[in-house]
Amino acid sequence: MQLSILIPRGPTLLALGVFLGLIFPALADLAHPLMPATIFLIVLGTLLRVDNRAVAAAFRRPSLSIFLPAVVMVVCPLMVGAAGHAIGLSPDLILAMVLAVSAPPSSGTTAVARMLGFDGAVPLVVTVLSMALAPISVPLLAGWFGGLELSPFDLALRLALLIGSAEGIALLCRRHAASMLASHGHMVDGIIVAALLVFALATMSGVRAQLAADIEAATLCLVLAFACNIALQAAGAMLLSGNLARRLTVGLILGNRNVGLVWSVIGAAASPRMALYFAATQLPIYILPRLVETLIGLEKNKVSQ
């Protein structure tokens, strides 16, 4: 089966992956050990899809090369942290929210944008530039808010190793197999979608048990995760001018983050509450694109009428 056929069905499959993980905990537990490998594969797949001409063009547009990455990697985490303090959340939950939003845009956002019929160049360029900033911005934000049982230096080193190794492999592949990558780009997107599906399953490991053990804490994490994602997507849609597709694309960039990247490098240093929140963020990341797809369909029907 060609993985590229997954792309048009991506939003539905990703939402399905989350629910399958909740309904069948054994399946989620089986996929859980694959989390680090899927994160690496997702990051690598994103870097393989880099178009040097698109990157060069982005550097000539300050809104893409400076403004959006700065908003994504610095402004959004600071705003979320300030909002968490304002509503009186616990320090570990505030830190979890800040770390989740300090992550670069989800590596699958480019693939999701293409699934929804949007231009994939903008999220791809912003994601790559944000990943380059991550080893600097994420440790600084973690140190600023405090409470993480992992030094900023160790966090920076782990992020640099993961992202740097993926970038090294991607550079080699683009140098020696550029034509093959260009002709099989949809296959790379299909692999990213498949990896996202496995990752969605894996993140639900233990979540059902946590829901049963502390329904109040789990509900709070879910509400905060959806509220944060929706607020960031709404802010992104209003951030830059343009048509509906471009606005929704920017919304996806701000709202959907590669929480798994930060989660995987933090590892055991994440408290149970932080891990629960990280897991909760996966639901809006995988469910909301399906809702956006529905809204786009309704909008197209109105235009056609």
Rank of each mutant, 00 (worst) to 15 (best):
C76Q: 00
C76L: 14
P77K: 12
P77Q: 12
M79P: 04
M79I: 15
M79G: 08
V80M: 11
G81W: 11
G81P: 00
G81F: 13
G81A: 08
A82E: 07
A82K: 06
H85T: 11
H85C: 10
I87P: 01
I87W: 14
G88N: 07
G88D: 07
L89I: 12
L89K: 01
S90Q: 13
P91K: 13
P91S: 14
P91T: 09
L93H: 00
I94F: 03
I94P: 01
I94E: 09
L95M: 07
L95E: 01
L95T: 02
L95A: 07
V98Y: 04
L99N: 00
P104I: 00
P104L: 02
P105Q: 05
P105R: 06
P105G: 07
S106L: 13
S107Y: 05
S107N: 15
G108N: 09
A111F: 04
A111Q: 03
V112M: 15
A113K: 02
R114T: 09
R114N: 12
R114C: 03
L116D: 02
G117N: 08
F118M: 13
D119K: 03
G120C: 06
G120R: 06
A121H: 05
A121G: 05
P123R: 02
P123Y: 04
L124M: 15
L124F: 11
L124I: 08
V125E: 05
V125Y: 00
V126L: 09
V128Q: 02
S130Y: 07
S130M: 06
M131K: 06
A132C: 12
L133S: 03
L133D: 01
P135V: 01
I136Q: 00
I136M: 10
S137D: 03
V138W: 08
P139Q: 11
L140W: 07
A142N: 01
A142V: 07
A142F: 05
G143F: 06
G143V: 09
W144M: 15
W144E: 12
G146I: 01
G146K: 11
G147S: 10
G147V: 01
E149M: 13
L150A: 03
L150M: 15
L150K: 04
S151M: 05
S151H: 02
P152T: 03
F153D: 14
F153L: 14
L155G: 00
A156M: 10
L157G: 03
L157M: 14
R158N: 12
A160S: 14
L161E: 06
L161C: 07
L162R: 07
L162K: 04
I163E: 03
I163P: 05
S165Y: 07
A166V: 09
A166W: 01
E167A: 12
E167G: 08
E167S: 11
I169T: 09
C173G: 10
R174A: 09
R174Q: 13
R174M: 10
R175E: 11
R175H: 15
R175K: 14
A177Q: 09
A177T: 08
A178E: 08
A178Y: 04
M180H: 13
L181V: 03
L181H: 08
A182M: 09
S183K: 08
G185D: 02
G185A: 14
H186E: 13
H186D: 14
H186P: 02
